[in-house]
Computed example of a mutant assay.
Amino acid sequence: MGKRHTRPSPIRSGISVDSPKRFDPGDFQLAGNGSHCLCPAGKRLYSNGSNCIFNGYAAMKFRGAERDCQPCTLRAQCLRTPEKTKTRQVAFFRGKRDGYETHTDRMKRKIDSDQDRQMITRRFATVEPVFGNLRNNKRLDRFTLRGRSKVDGQWKLYCLVHNIEKLAHYGVSQ
C-alpha cells in the first residue's frame, strides 16, 4: 500500500485558512500599447519607468494612484502590508535584454584588452595603496560619525593625515 497523501494541517503549517490569495502580476491586465495596466478591481495603474532592468531582464513598472488604492475593497488581497503600504506596484517582465552585460562581464572584457590592463595595473600602484594605508595602518575600517557632512569631514581628515605623512617621509619633490 502506498502512503496516504493528505494536505498539511493549516494550524501546523502556519497557513491561514481564511486568508485570501494575494494578487500576482498575472492578475493584472497590461494595455496593448503598454501605457498602463488594470488591477483586478478595474482601476488604472500608471507607468512608473518603462525601461527598467532587473538582473538583465527588461521590465515595465506600474504604480497605482493613491486615490484609487486607499479606499479599494481588494486592498488586503493586493498588498502584503496594507496598513503600511500606500499603493500597489507591479512589474511586467519582457524577457532578457539584448546585449545586456553584467558589471562582471564588462570588467572581464576590460581586463582582457591591453590598454585597459595597463590602466588597471597602474591603478594598483597609485590608488589602491592609499586605501590600504587608510584601512589597515590608520585603522579606518568604518566611520565613527553619522551624517554625510561629518563622514565627509572624517574622510578628508584621514586623507590629510595620509598626505602629511607622505610629505614628512619623502619630502616635497622639486
Rank of each mutant, 00 (worst) to 15 (best):
N51E: 06
G42A: 06
I120A: 08
T73M: 00
G49Y: 15
R97L: 10
P8Q: 05
A59Y: 12
G95N: 03
F124G: 12
C39P: 04
I53T: 02
R63G: 06
I111E: 14
K43Y: 14
Q70Y: 10
F54M: 10
Q29S: 11
H5A: 15
D98G: 03
F54H: 15
N48M: 06
L74G: 07
G99H: 05
I120V: 15
S113I: 09
C52D: 10
A58G: 08
D105M: 15
D27N: 14
D27Q: 06
S35V: 00
T73N: 03
S13W: 12
A65E: 09
G95H: 08
V17L: 09
T87M: 13
E128D: 14
T87P: 00
G14L: 00
E66D: 12
G49T: 09
P40S: 03
G42V: 08
P25Y: 02
D27E: 09
C52T: 11
N51M: 14
T87A: 14
E101G: 00
H5C: 13
F93T: 10
R12Y: 10
N55L: 02
L38N: 05
F92M: 08
R123I: 10
R7P: 01
K21C: 12
P40N: 08
A41S: 13
G34S: 06
N55A: 13
I15H: 11
G42E: 04
R80P: 05
D112Q: 13
K21N: 07
A41W: 01
K61V: 06
Q118A: 10
T73D: 13
C39R: 07
F92H: 07
F54P: 05
V17R: 09
S16D: 15
D114K: 12
R67Q: 06
K84E: 12
N55K: 13
P25G: 10
K43F: 15
K86F: 05
Y57E: 00
N48E: 03
G56W: 02
G95T: 01
K108H: 15
I111H: 15
T121I: 15
P71L: 07
I11C: 00
S9K: 00
C52E: 04
D114C: 01
F23M: 03
R106I: 02
A76N: 13
D68I: 04
A58N: 12
Q89N: 13
D24I: 00
R67G: 01
F28E: 01
N33W: 10
A58H: 07
S13M: 05
C72T: 09
K61M: 09
R117S: 03
G34E: 02
Q70C: 15
E66L: 11
L79I: 13
P10H: 01
P82T: 04
A76C: 09
T73Q: 09
Y100H: 08
P25E: 14
Q118L: 12
C78R: 05
D114F: 09
A41T: 07
C37E: 11
A59Q: 13
